[in-house]
Write a protein that binds this DNA or RNA. Structure first.
Lengths: 201, 201
DNA sequence: GGCCCGGCATGACATCCGTCATGGGCCCGT
DNA sequence: ACGGGCCCATGACGGATGTCATGCCGGGCC
């Protein structure tokens, strides 16, 4: 009997996936959480074998939760199950010690198999996404560039970003210009979009 | 026996919700589609009583699918089930003849009840969202303003937007300026974000 | 020790953007 | 018929933005 934890901020999806996996005779959902920072405690308490983690979650995102599990509960394997198949997500997930990466586009029948494979020590990776990840490559952005770009994401002005980041306005503009150049964008907003789509945020 | 259709672009979610609802003795999922423009045909073919529609779908969005159902298969009721609880979505969904509106944050146990209520002719609306919808009000944006703002969403330059919309650059700037003013934003990017969050796209 | 890269900053410049005034055409309600 | 709202456009102005050159500091790496 494989003991599972579900982490997803959407209660409906959580419950539905639980119903789906409980149909399998060898799988058992023993815990559900809606926040990333509740994962480690729940995994410990319920002796979880495999944790299914969404990426977009409040508190702690799924990739960070996978890293926390690797460090603090190494007996539990992580399977990332996410809406967005962004190349950067896959890379970071594997770096964080996740054993698998599945997008929510995949047919429901394959999820149980993915869980079993992860539990048996195999790696499960969406093949299309693996190719995309190799094609796109790692993020060309520097830490500060990514940070400033993230601050620019909600549409603030340069002065506002400079205030939030405790930087000079000129420096902010330099970072933005650099990020625009590296992403091949023509506007700061386009750079934000490209970086988002690639998972470089 | 209530006959259901599921429309969601994420196959995994579709299958999971189907598993969840098939647990109920009086509910039966008889069709699943991944595109909005396949809804009407599937509803007709399988004599569906209630259609569960996601908003974000390729082909035709869930709200438009609900409107199509109202016009062409009035015997079938629509229940919008969506990720984003945006006030404008609710308003447009009700205008399109949907009988219910549920966000994916709600507990899984309530979904079956929502389906039953919709089937019996009642309206089901998330109460928090109803309040937000009244507070926020309808979109202050004009058709063209919304259109131009949507084109600006992916970070293009004014010239690019003007080209796509067959408008003068000055006109584009006027519409953007007007949209910025109406949304209370300080930047075009911020106006895009606000309009998105409110479902004014 | 030299070299490169990243973080941080300043200054200057051309361009783009947001705003405002103004005008014309169209349709709708009264 | 008049007013008002939306659609489309032009022109001008100030400020914001993107780019470039340049500089200083610190930490790896050969």
């Amino acid at each position: 009997m494989i003991r599972l934890l579900l982490a997803d901020d959407q209660a409906l999806v959580r419950g539905a996936v639980a119903a789906l996996l409980d149909l399998e005779p060898d799988l058992e959902v023993v815990a559900q959480v809606g926040r990333g920072d509740e994962v480690v405690d729940a995994v410990r308490e319920h002796a979880v074998d495999v944790a299914l983690l969404d990426v977009e979650m409040p508190g702690l995102d799924g990739v960070a939760a996978a890293a926390a599990l690797r460090d603090r509960v190494p007996s539990c394997r992580s399977l990332i199950v996410t809406t967005f198949g962004r190349p950067g997500y896959l890379r970071r997930a594997l770096d964080a010690g996740a054993s698998g990466f599945v997008v929510k586009d995949t047919p429901a029948e394959l999820l149980a198999d993915a869980v079993r494979r992860v539990h048996s020590g195999l790696r499960v990776v969406d093949p299309d996404l693996a190719v995309a990840s190799l094609t796109v490559g790692a993020s060309p952005l520097t830490d500060r560039e990514a940070h400033v770009l993230a601050l620019a994401a909600d549409g603030g002005t340069v002065a506002g970003i400079a205030g939030e980041a405790y930087l000079s306005e000129g420096t902010v503009r330099n970072y933005l210009s650099s990020a625009i150049g590296k992403t091949g964008a023509r506007t700061r907003a386009e750079a934000v979009r490209i970086a988002r789509d690639n998972g470089w945020l």
